[in-house]
Nucleic acid binder design. Structure first.
Length: 439
RNA sequence: CGGGGCGUGGCGCAGCCUGGUUAGCGCGCGUGUUUUGGGUACACGAGGCCGCCGGUUCGAAUCCGGCCGCCCCGACCA
């Protein structure tokens, strides 16, 4: 994309409403604009990042055997009356009426809808187990939205739902999702720690929050330093196989034997047994949450599946959420400096920015066009008629992993400067070498 | 939802208390010159229903009332 023709409104000054780094940088770098309290429009480069994250989440869900579908944003109140949550959910649920005065709502979550879909179609244990997910916009009418997209009212969420014949099966599904989550966060360049968590309004007795550490996190967290060395393998190549219950068990043990809890579940007695030099505490941002809740919905909604003996069984469920839009902010909280964002390669809006320091100079223009042609839409070509300083500042602000700096001095000798955003390291190389190193 | 605060060109703000000629400043934007590897300098210029409605007054950005929106602290939360 050519910056001269793009819609990327960067700002030199920080809008007064933005308090924390990610919010500030998302506004300044032109990723989002607020349209109402806690509601944001995603501008081109912000949307690219959002889709990149979404895609990684999707790939890891698919790898774990979950199937993607798409449920609506608007739901009928009737289903929620069936589960008993219509009255319970409170004012966070946005309730609306259609023209016939029917009670509708903008979904804050989808247990009812997925259970309804499931009960309509799955009748036999032979079709079990199932894990279904979707990536959809949700709305929760938070009393006090803040921190930009980290705590918005409208947000993009991946939510998965597992259905198993019994508790043992549900535990296997739960572990699969835990593994998928750790791989997802690892690919996003985040170090996430699963912590025992409250089950909240959804209910249940087995639940973990996935926390990434950041000074602006909303909760205080405590964990054993052993987590910092845990190796759980990378996607597809790691030592754990989704099809092997033994692997899943080993993985789960690895993730849950070391102490890790948020303040709500913090256990001072257990904490006291940990060696002082291994104690770690700080602030954390919740980026995912998984629950096992058994028959909480399948019973009231009358969901049954025939078992091998022909008798009806209420499936055991779990649900698994990842805050996709929140992750954009969370990644920035975990990866930025005074100059701007530092995107991990996996989710950057562009692999590289090409900075033409002197538009109109034949050598600069030629080299830039040559490099840009090799990357096409995966690079951002700063071809604006602006000063070098402006381009450096914007490139740092937007956080492209690589910057290819093409100035008249080097260009005359057929050289460009390659800068790595994360380290600040710069090297003078040929255009071919720059292209090769960016990959 | 309790407490506090703010709405003035795209962004950041001053002006309001002590109503009074064309509502200012910085950044950004446009044109020209200048500069040419880290947000250059100068000149000229465009751009504002002073959140909305009502009231007081000869006169309201400024005073009064109502409403709306947004932000911060707390409680709450993917």
């Amino acid at each position: 994309m050519r910056l001269s023709r793009s819609f990327i409104p960067t700002m030199k000054e920080t809008p007064a409403e933005a308090q924390i780094a990610s919010h500030r940088l998302m506004l300044r770098a032109g990723l989002v604009r607020q349209t109402a309290a806690g509601i944001y429009a995603w501008l081109p480069i912000g949307y690219r990042v959002l889709r990149n994250i979404e895609q990684i989440v999707r790939e890891e869900q698919d790898a774990a055997g979950a199937q993607e579908l798409l449920m609506p944003t608007i739901q009928s109140a009737d289903l929620w009356r069936e589960s008993g949550r219509y009255e319970d959910y409170g004012k966070e649920m946005l309730r609306i009426k259609d023209r016939h005065d029917r009670d509708m709502l903008y979904g804050p979550t989808n247990e009812e809808v997925i259970s309804d879909l499931f009960r309509q179609s799955v009748k036999s244990y032979r079709e079990m187990p199932q894990i279904l997910y979707h990536i959809q916009w949700k709305f929760r009418d938070e009393v006090r939205p803040r921190f930009g997209v980290m705590r918005g009212r409208e947000f993009l969420m991946k939510d998965a739902y597992s259905f198993d014949m019994d508790h043992a099966g549900a535990v296997v599904s739960y572990r699969k999702m835990m593994l998928a989550y750790m791989r997802t966060f690892q690919r996003l360049g985040l170090k996430a720690i699963p912590m025992v968590a409250d089950t909240g309004p959804i209910g249940g007795d087995l639940s973990h929050e996935f926390i990434i550490l950041a000074p602006t996190g909303e909760s205080q967290v405590y964990y054993d330093a052993a987590f910092e060395e845990v190796d759980y393998g990378t996607s597809g190549t790691g030592g754990f196989n989704y099809a092997d219950a033994g692997d899943l068990h080993r993985f789960f043990e690895l993730m849950t034997t070391n102490y890790a809890a948020t303040d709500e579940k913090h256990d001072e007695a257990k904490w006291a047994t940990i060696a002082p030099e291994r104690k770690r505490e700080g602030r954390g941002i919740e980026v995912g949450h998984i629950f096992y809740f058994g028959t909480r919905y399948t019973k009231p909604l009358g969901v049954t599946v025939a078992g091998p003996d022909g008798k009806p069984v209420h499936p055991e469920m779990g649900s698994y959420g990842v805050g996709v839009s929140r992750l954009v902010g969370a990644v920035i909280e975990a990866s930025h400096d005074e100059a701007g964002i530092i995107w991990p390669d996996a989710i950057a809006p562009f692999k590289a920015a090409i900075l033409n320091l002197k538009r109109g100079d034949a050598a600069c223009d030629g080299l830039c066009e040559q490099i840009y042609a090799r990357f096409g839409s995966s690079a951002l070509y700063d071809d604006r008629e602006d000063r070098a300083g402006v381009k450096f500042a914007d490139a740092d602000l937007m956080g492209h992993p690589w910057q290819v700096v093409v100035g008249p001095r080097g260009a005359a000798a057929g050289k460009v400067e390659l800068k790595r955003r994360a380290t600040g390291e710069r090297v003078e190389v040929t255009p071919e070498e720059a292209i090769a190193r960016i990959g």
